[in-house]
Design a protein around this nucleic acid. Structure first.
Lengths: 66, 66
DNA sequence: TGTATATGATCCCGATCGGGTATAAAATAG
DNA sequence: CTATTTTATACCCGATCGGGATCATATACA
């Protein structure tokens, strides 16, 4: 599982959103949210950022250790 | 410009690699390296990680302020 | 001058993404 | 403890797009 998979799944739950609600809020498909939370590796960067931006975050360079 | 665009361009130069050499080392196309360093938004995550891993880094969640 | 880089235009293959649907699991109601 | 609803997972399909390869041109730089 990647880094944002966990981050997003937890954040979504703490704010009480369903996957479907998050999808429509972020302007992406439900399938994408599911792939994302499932840790799919080959997602598109802009789509991931589209979702992360709802939580004031974005994709960036990090070390292997979290 | 995104975060890894700058990071990768600088790293590549400090280790003395051309875009072409980096591309073949990372197993991606030259065009991808160029798009990457130019900050293209819609790249695929796995490919970006493929390149970042050469420098012991990966893609992760970060704040808007770097 | 030659080398590295940037940008644009194709073509082509394969994957992503979204929509729909069917199903499974979890939560809630009766 | 069941029945119903909600939420999550899995699969197929079709349109779209990424990315590799290649050629061409333009610019920056050593």
């Amino acid at each position: 599982m990647s880094n944002f998979s966990i981050f997003l799944k937890e954040r979504r739950k703490t704010v009480g959103l369903t996957q479907e609600e998050l999808a429509s809020k972020a302007g992406v498909g439900l399938r994408f949210i599911r792939d994302l939370e499932q840790g799919k590796k080959s997602l598109r960067l802009d789509k991931v950022n589209q979702v992360l931006s709802l939580f004031g975050k974005e994709v960036g360079v990090v070390d292997f250790n979290s």
